[in-house]
Design a protein around this nucleic acid. Structure first.
Length: 500
RNA sequence: CGCGGGAUAGAGCAGCCAGGUAGCUCGUCAGGCUCAUAACCUGAAGGUCAACGGUUCAAAUCCGUUUCCCGCAACCA
């Protein structure tokens, strides 16, 4: 069952500080990477920064810095945020790194030599204010001032050449673009004739980029540069063995805003290079913030990242993963955060730990009893817990993280219910061994839940497993050792009180 | 008629592909328990499954029309 799993986030554009969108994608990738590691897969998790292009140059100018200095200043902010969010990537790529520049130039040369790049005089509407070409539709929208027709010689990539190949590929590989409605969008988009892609920018206009190897007057268009990061990192043209091992990527995770670039630009580039396409491109939705119905009593927290300091990284990771449905958008409100925190983490998960550790402390001097004689109710819990690992794994494979979490919480709820019915605090007065069996069963359910929630909440689940003396245990029934002395602990997720 | 997605209890979602008592979480109300973080457990109320029409013994589910919401419409990372 040991497969390789190569997952990527987009490399983030450093024209601004990291925000919730960056954080969400990266946490999601981290959670998927951790689930796959737990399942025994060999994992390569790549993230990084996209540092070239006009917007970066402008942002740098505005701050009175050189473009590189600007990037060097922003990069640590991303890296530090990832540390704070418990993100464990395997490689962090920056497009200004030598290793990347080399590969981009080699790719350009290769594609150029294959005849897929040509020089062409482009004429279009140029927005002086925006310093870029705009489309006909944009021009008609009237949102751009100082629009004038402009002619410019540029290098173009023959994207149109691969249009039919791409359409066929998407049709033959249903899981290539997900979710399904995004796939349909792309197929719809491809019904119209595909133009070629302008991949150069004249240095006279914009020089912060990778110089074209075959024309020193131009730098590479930032997307053509950026997308190549996915093959630079696993060793394309630098480490054949490594590259062979990891490519193609299993999942490119991205926001819905950059689906076209990935599913059209990137794939046609790969066709031109004769490289296999990534197995899945998954476009997730956005977090909508600022729903004005936010309750006044809850204060005015707007940035979810601020919640990390206040409520802990695990709670925030849990919330983001649990609340976002598949490829849809989700609303962020402090109210829903607190609800989710209290109902799932404090009342169900954290409280279950308190219940069992309290009872074990009271009746067994804090020592885990023998599992002993099991009956129907115990077997029911065992069955549910035993099936959970496979179920969660399948949901994770389908990228349905929120459902995987919900499925795990069902076991936590079942364990709480089981305790209620079996009432070990009563049974202990008549039969201590039987009470021990009940507590063992509940603790096993808790332990397995913790193991399966570990990718989402690495820190808090580590605490639970530490209390149970079961660090590094597998989500299989029976790994909790009787005779273990439970460690003392504080409330895992203290309930949040909401002032009226 | 540019292409596509959606409309299911107060809220957020599942169910639709392979028609057959409408389900989950939160919230509300009542009760229980008292080991626990005023928690946990049980029960109840609450839905003409957007509207209209069609197919069928049977439609949230398949087909058509209408209304409303949303996404995409490329060189903007």
């Amino acid at each position: 069952m040991n497969n390789k799993f190569y997952i990527t986030t987009p490399i983030y554009y450093v024209n601004d500080k990291p925000h919730i969108g960056h954080a969400y994608t990266t946490i999601l990738a981290d959670v998927l990477a951790r689930y796959h590691k737990t399942a025994g897969d060999e994992v390569f998790f790549l993230t990084g920064l996209d540092e070239h292009g006009q917007k970066v140059q402008q942002a740098a100018q505005k701050r009175g810095l050189s473009a590189q200095a600007h990037c060097d200043d922003l990069a640590p902010r991303f890296i530090q945020l990832w540390e704070k969010l418990e993100i464990k990537y395997d490689d962090f790529i920056r497009t200004t790194q030598e290793r990347h520049i080399k590969v981009v130039q080699a790719v350009l040369q290769k594609v150029y030599e294959s005849g897929d790049i040509y020089l062409h005089e482009y004429e279009g509407w140029y927005s002086v204010a925006e310093e870029r070409f705009i489309t006909e539709t944009e021009k008609e929208s009237g949102a751009f001032r100082d629009v004038k027709p402009l002619k410019e010689r540029n290098w173009f990539f023959k994207m149109s050449k691969y249009q039919q190949t791409l359409i066929d590929y998407i049709n033959d590989n249903p899981s290539f673009i997900q979710p399904v409605h995004r796939r349909n969008e792309i197929l719809g988009f491809l019904k119209q004739p595909l133009g070629d892609l302008c991949i150069s920018r004249p240095k006279a206009r914009m020089d912060w980029g990778i110089e074209l190897p075959f024309d020193k007057e131009y730098v590479t268009y930032v997307w053509f540069d950026a997308l190549i990061n996915y093959i630079t990192a696993p060793g394309y043209l630098s480490d054949d063995e490594k590259f062979k091992k990891w490519w193609p990527a299993d999942v490119h995770l991205l926001g819905k805003d950059i689906l076209t670039t990935h599913s059209v630009y990137w794939t046609t580039m790969l066709f031109s290079l004769a490289l296999p396409l990534p197995k899945t491109i998954f476009a997730h939705g956005w977090w909508l913030i600022g729903e004005t119905k936010m309750s006044k009593s809850l204060g005015n927290v707007v940035n979810p990242l601020d919640l990390v300091d206040q409520y802990g990284v695990d709670a925030v990771r849990y919330y983001l993963m649990r609340e976002m449905v598949l490829g849809q958008d989700a609303n962020f409100t402090l109210e829903s955060f607190i609800k989710r925190y209290n109902s799932d983490l404090a009342n169900d998960f954290g409280n279950l730990l308190n219940r069992v550790s309290g009872l074990v402390g009271k009746y067994f001097e804090g020592v885990v009893a023998e599992e002993g004689q099991v009956n129907e109710p115990e077997l029911a819990i065992q069955k549910q817990a035993g099936a959970l690992d496979a179920k969660v794994r399948q949901l994770v494979d389908e990228l349905r993280i929120n459902e995987a979490i919900e499925e795990t919480l069902q076991l936590v709820r079942a364990a709480n219910k089981y305790l209620e019915y079996q009432a070990p605090w009563k049974v202990a007065k008549e039969s201590l061994p039987q009470a021990g069996t009940i507590l063992y069963t509940a603790m096993e359910a808790l332990r397995i839940s913790a193991v399966l929630l570990a990718p989402v909440m690495p820190a808090k689940t580590a605490t639970v497993l530490d209390v149970l003396g079961a660090t590094d245990s597998a989500p299989r029934w029976g790994e909790l050792k009787s005779g273990t002395k439970l460690k003392t602990h504080d409330a895992l997720f203290p309930r949040l009180e909401v002032k009226e």
